[in-house]
């Protein structure tokens, strides 16, 4: 087994030092305290800053512990914050696709609807925020299952509940379907929850690429799908673009 990695030890020492000090510290102070060359300390700080573990005051150049570090223990994104950050892009997706938009996260093996934008046709619709949907029969749920390894735990090994003839009920089939979703980066559901309805969804990624939720559209199957019953490619692009835009805003650099 290799020995301890020196730069991680040093990084940890910097974090401990910042945690102990009451105010912010300059790079010089940090280097002196830890007996490191200034350049080394600076390099470590830069990396720690990049991952959000330290923050630099733009006016003084001094460092303090970063917000990401405080959230580390509960490394989730507050669902209300997710809604706040996604609201503009969810609106744009609804406007572009002319369908209703939902954003979902995982709650005890189900999809919790954290945001809902009405279909922009001014018909009577009711806000579904706070409602729960099954994971295996919705596009949002399948995205969450595919990309969040913990999400599937609650589903168990037995057959899944059938909502329509097309619901995926065999765990083996679901596993195969999820592998396909991981490959293409989006999911669809065609009459798997309700006859006549379909949906498309894509993952929302937060810091470091962690999937924190899913965004998708749903509506009448003849609008969501083409003549061959396949999800309309233009709509898929809209959904994926929206997911990417939210992810970018949440700090997922590469998506």
């Amino acid at each position: 087994m290799p020995g301890p990695v020196q730069s991680i030890q040093r990084g940890a020492a910097i974090l401990r030092l910042l945690a102990r000090s009451s105010g912010k510290l300059g790079v010089g102070e940090i280097a002196t305290s830890l007996g490191l060359p200034r350049g080394t300390a600076h390099g470590l700080l830069r990396t720690l800053q990049l991952v959000g573990f330290v923050e630099q005051d733009s006016a003084t150049g001094k460092y303090q512990l970063g917000a990401a570090l405080l959230h580390l223990g509960t490394s989730y994104l507050d669902v209300n914050e997710l809604r706040s950050r996604a609201i503009n892009w969810a609106d744009a997706l609804a406007a572009r696709s002319c369908e209703s938009v939902k954003i979902g996260t995982v709650l005890d093996g189900q999809v919790l609807v954290v945001h809902h934008v009405f279909r922009p046709d001014d018909t009577l619709q009711t806000l579904d925020v706070g409602s729960l949907m099954p994971m295996h029969a919705t596009a949002l749920g399948k995205v969450l299952l595919a990309f969040d390894s913990g999400a599937g735990a609650a589903l168990g090994n037995g057959p899944l509940e059938a909502y329509t003839r097309r619901t995926i009920v065999a765990p083996k089939d679901l596993t195969r379907s999820l592998a396909g979703i991981r490959e293409v980066g989006w999911a669809a559901q065609v009459e798997e929850m309700t006859v006549g309805e379909a949906g498309i969804a894509a993952p929302i990624r937060g810091h470091g690429g962690l999937v924190v939720g899913a965004i998708g559209i749903s509506g009448a199957v003849e609008r969501i799908c083409d003549a061959k019953g396949q999800p309309n490619t233009a709509l898929v692009t809209f959904v994926r673009d929206a997911a990417r835009a939210v992810s970018r805003d949440l700090g997922a650099a590469r998506w």
Partner: peptide, 11 residues
Amino acid sequence: LRRNWHRAAQW
């Protein structure tokens, strides 16, 4: 312009 206005949510 009015025709561009659409309800996104209602409480």
